[in-house]
């Protein structure tokens, strides 16, 4: 039986984030540090102001778009699978299936393997490499949807629902709130796979990231900024950040049907809270069965839970005969998804 103390000598949570003492670096720190390894480009994981950053090439490109070219003293990219020695630790990055460039970080130290998954999901996503199970002694998991009520529907049934509403509401704009990095591009590709080939209209805040995806070789089909529209976009599909759904910006559209693509839409009260008429359960995070399956697959005996509904997941880990520990990481924005 392992215990926390065994890992705590070389990797442990701190106020600034998870710290690897063996290599003197932080993983997704919440404040500027000398050396950081970043799992993916979402703003609650990738912040500006670190001395040195190690991440996948895609994550670095995303950080440069969002945070500026000089968001860190030095940006070092490393592809999936290759190993870099940092101090007394061997560090490699492995696909997490969360968004483009997202990585789990495997740190090996004196025969022990710690895998820090960042955010992840297990289902197919046409915009990024699929999650790769990495055997671990210590597995650090998220728990955004860490309750048995969260079972995401198949993506295809959700896009079918969207297109059905679009066909049935010719006089209205279909306005869908999406998180700008990952969800937006994934929803566009899901619509393309469902045969929707009309231009998809974008809120201005979504344009730069879609351009980057296209530059990185992910074909999103015809896109157009809402600012360039000459009509109220009745019958069209418009994507915007969730905050713009019910704001003044949306008044220019034709009596919009407001939708929201998020794992939270599984729970009615959450959809109603936001006044969502068309809830789409499309998530970039693991749902409950995926969390449980992944924990089993890594074969880790010790599991640390970073953020989300950690009570339930830690309890479940106990039921599975493993050691679970809630880290209660500061600075994680669990609502944004």
């Amino acid at each position: 039986m392992t215990n926390s103390a065994k890992f705590d000598t070389w990797i442990y949570p701190t106020k600034r984030g998870l710290y690897c003492a063996a290599g003197d670096f932080y993983i997704d720190p919440s404040q500027p540090v000398e050396r950081a390894v970043i799992t993916h480009g979402h703003s609650d994981h990738a912040r500006a102001g670190h001395g040195r950053v190690l991440a996948t090439p895609e994550t670095i490109a995303i950080m440069q778009i969002r945070l500026g070219k000089t968001c860190a003293g030095a940006l070092q990219s490393q592809g999936y699978g290759s190993v870099l020695q940092i101090g007394d630790a061997d560090v490699s990055l492995h696909p997490a299936g969360h968004i483009l460039g997202s990585a789990q970080i495997l740190v090996r130290h004196r025969g022990q393997r710690a895998v820090v998954s960042g955010d992840y999901k297990r289902r197919f996503d046409p915009t990024c490499a699929p999650f790769e199970p990495v055997p671990a002694d210590l597995f650090v998991t998220e728990a955004t949807f860490g309750l048995p009520v969260f079972r995401h529907e198949p993506d295809a049934s959700e896009t079918a629902k969207l297109l059905e509403v679009q066909r049935a509401s010719p006089g209205r704009t279909i306005l869908i709130g999406v998180y700008g990095l990952g969800k937006c591009q994934r929803l566009i590709l899901l619509l393309r796979q469902a045969g929707y080939d009309r231009p998809i209209w974008l809120h201005g805040a979504l344009v730069a990231m879609c351009d980057l995806y296209q530059t990185l070789g992910i074909d999103l089909g015809p896109l157009a900024p809402v600012a360039a529209a000459t009509s109220t976009l009745a019958g069209e599909i418009v994507l915007c950040p969730p905050s713009a759904l019910a704001d003044r910006w949306s008044r220019r559209l034709a009596d919009p049907v407001t939708g929201f693509a998020s794992g939270w839409m599984r729970v009615r009260a959450r959809a109603r809270q936001r006044g969502v008429e068309l809830p789409l359960v499309i998530s970039d995070h693991a749902d409950w069965p995926e969390l449980v399956t992944t924990i089993a697959e890594t074969a880790a005996e010790e599991i640390w839970v970073t953020h989300g509904r950690e009570d339930a997941l830690v309890h479940q880990i106990g039921l599975m005969g493993r050691r679970g520990r809630a880290l209660a990481m500061v600075g994680r924005d669990e609502e944004a998804e």
């Binding site: 309750l147 048995p148 009520v149 729970v267 009260a269 509904r309 009570d311 339930a312």
Partner: peptide
């Protein structure tokens, strides 16, 4: 499991 049910019920509210 009863604990998982209770946590779920608390979250969903119905």
């Amino acid at each position: 499991d009863a604990v998982l049910y209770r946590l779920s019920r608390d979250y969903v509210g119905d």
